[in-house]
Simulated scan of single mutants.
Amino acid sequence: MISGQDWPLRSADKIVKFFEEHNGTNFVQYWNSKNHGSHQQNNLDKRNQIYFPIKLIGRKPWQKIIKRGWVEFTGGYNRTWKIFERKQLGIEFYFGSSWWALKRETIDWIMQYITTHPEYYKFYENATCPDESFFHTLVMLSPYADENTDYLTYLHFQKGANSPDILTEDNLQRARESKYLIMRKVDMNVDDSFLQI
């Protein structure tokens, strides 16, 4: 799983060789809800705990403002008034980075599960940031839950930031010396030197 703002740190041949050597491994970051098992609600839980109308889900300024107001009205990020709790699926949710690489058996299991449990897909239509929970929860529901390792994308976050830094050529060497295959995020309007490498 990559995006248009990702940049390969290895050649295509080396990336293919890596997956051949790690055949049968799921690369996905995950942690459970309730603050990593401390049973205290946090803003990750809130994403799935209340109903978010589809029109509120987006990056437009007015959507962000109304969505934040809705979160506060329903109890804030660290709690939810009972009256606003949506009907849950009866499963434990997991969260993590959007960037993952899953083996074929896991993908096949996920596709079969979604086909036989349409309520799962429907539930996430009204959750925020579903890409940071949808697949992670399914992997942990699957028979392959114990066959996971970390994700393969190099990121750099400023302390307290919600999004990773835009990386430049200055970051490239450090990223290449890391264990990761891909780095994000890059923006050619900020630094297009990647095109020359």
Score class of each variant (00 low, 15 high):
residue 66 I to W: 08
residue 70 W to E: 12
residue 104 R to K: 12
residue 136 H to D: 05
residue 78 N to V: 11
residue 116 T to H: 07
residue 75 G to D: 03
residue 118 P to E: 05
residue 73 F to H: 13
residue 79 R to E: 10
residue 94 Y to T: 07
residue 126 N to R: 11
residue 63 Q to N: 00
residue 106 T to E: 06
residue 154 Y to C: 10
residue 68 R to A: 07
residue 96 G to K: 02
residue 102 L to T: 13
residue 91 I to H: 00
residue 85 E to V: 08
residue 62 W to P: 07
residue 67 K to P: 05
residue 129 C to G: 00
residue 128 T to L: 04
residue 101 A to P: 02
residue 105 E to N: 14
residue 95 F to W: 14
residue 120 Y to V: 05
residue 144 Y to S: 12
residue 80 T to R: 00
residue 152 L to N: 08
residue 85 E to M: 01
residue 77 Y to I: 14
residue 119 E to N: 05
residue 69 G to Y: 04
residue 126 N to V: 14
residue 84 F to E: 03
residue 99 W to R: 09
residue 80 T to I: 03
residue 109 W to S: 04
residue 79 R to V: 03
residue 85 E to W: 01
residue 68 R to H: 07
residue 153 T to F: 07
residue 69 G to P: 04
residue 75 G to V: 03
residue 94 Y to V: 07
residue 138 L to H: 06
residue 80 T to A: 01
residue 82 K to M: 01
residue 107 I to L: 14
residue 140 M to E: 12
residue 162 N to H: 10
residue 153 T to R: 12
residue 93 F to Q: 07
residue 139 V to W: 01
residue 153 T to E: 02
residue 155 L to T: 12
residue 103 K to M: 15
residue 69 G to V: 08
residue 133 S to A: 12
residue 159 K to D: 14
residue 73 F to M: 15
residue 64 K to V: 11
residue 132 E to K: 09
residue 92 E to N: 11
residue 70 W to D: 09
residue 160 G to I: 13
residue 150 D to T: 12
residue 117 H to L: 03
residue 129 C to D: 09
residue 147 E to D: 14
residue 128 T to S: 06
residue 81 W to H: 10
residue 65 I to F: 13
residue 156 H to N: 14
residue 73 F to Y: 15
residue 134 F to W: 09
residue 102 L to R: 11
residue 126 N to L: 04
residue 149 T to W: 00
residue 88 Q to Y: 02
residue 155 L to Y: 12
residue 82 K to A: 01
residue 69 G to A: 09
residue 152 L to E: 11
residue 134 F to R: 09
residue 144 Y to W: 14
residue 140 M to N: 15
residue 83 I to L: 00
residue 102 L to K: 10
residue 156 H to K: 15
residue 108 D to W: 11
residue 140 M to C: 12
